[in-house]
Amino acid sequence: MKTIILIPPSEGKADGGNNNSLKSVAGITADLIEAIKEADPKKLYGLKGKALEKAIIVNKEVLISKTMPAIERYTGVVYDAIDYQTLKNKSDFDKKVLIVSGLFGLVSPNDLIPNYRLKIDKLKAAKLWKNSNSEKLRDKFVIDLLPQAHKKAVKYDNGIEVEFVLKKEGKKMPAGHQGKHIKGQFVRWLIENNITDPKHFKDFKEEGYKWTGEFFLKEI
């Protein structure tokens, strides 16, 4: 059974691109682009000033702007920690990792995408993508590193959710933003060591996290 590692996109994205524009799209992506045009920008993006203006322009030009591989487009903390350019076995990463995008559904690292702005909890994107995404995950073993909002966009029969949890004074809490970097490190570790079976998760001990059999725990 093929293993798939699911990761979220990043809100931060690189500008520009060196490849041709999409020009046209179909299906759910096309429907969402139309919905973006009709939506109230302030409610859709939750931004103000120049950041709002940029988001509006980025989506207005989404079909005519240059594209680049998704792994280069996304620039957030998870992606910094993965550090794709220094991976020895990039081809393994390209085969196993899928990114759950609000606008494009399940995206492979080498898929060419433009800059865009759409959170998966907006315009019912997660609900719209769920059937399509889930069909692509059929008969796969999924290692799920998704935040709660993105989990709503997928369904799979075989897999494991991987959470990073902090414990302070006996109380447990999600690692939150701090967990993004360790998630990226974990993905890199999975790829570099060809890990597909959760029984080996106990061998990952970065930054003080230890696998409990249910989640990674760090006492602080």
Rank of each mutant, 00 (worst) to 15 (best):
G17L: 05
W211D: 09
D203Y: 12
L52H: 02
M1T: 09
A51G: 07
K23R: 12
P109R: 09
G170L: 08
K167V: 08
I57K: 15
S91F: 02
S91W: 05
N194R: 10
G170Q: 07
G76K: 12
D94F: 04
L44A: 05
K151C: 02
L123H: 01
K88E: 11
W211P: 14
L190M: 07
N131W: 00
L137H: 13
L137E: 10
F186I: 13
E206W: 01
D40P: 07
E135P: 10
S65L: 07
N19E: 02
E61A: 05
I160R: 15
G170M: 09
R117N: 09
L137K: 14
K60T: 10
E135V: 10
I143N: 12
W129V: 11
V100H: 05
G102W: 00
F216W: 11
F186M: 15
V100D: 08
A70V: 11
Q185Y: 11
E192C: 07
I71W: 04
K122I: 04
K96P: 11
L87V: 11
T3W: 02
V107N: 03
T196E: 15
P174K: 11
N18F: 00
I7G: 09
F201D: 08
K155C: 01
E72W: 01
D15R: 15
Y45E: 03
V187P: 08
T86M: 01
E11G: 10
L146T: 06
K43E: 06
K13L: 00
K202D: 06
L106F: 02
D15L: 14
Y116V: 12
E135G: 08
A125W: 01
V107Y: 03
S134V: 03
T75M: 02
D144H: 13
A26R: 15
K180E: 02
L118Q: 05
A39G: 04
S134F: 00
G49F: 01
L32V: 02
A30G: 00
K136H: 05
V142H: 09
D83Y: 08
P69A: 01
G76R: 09
E38V: 00
A35N: 00
K180P: 05
D144F: 07
I195G: 04
K60P: 01
Y156W: 06
K37V: 02
H181M: 07
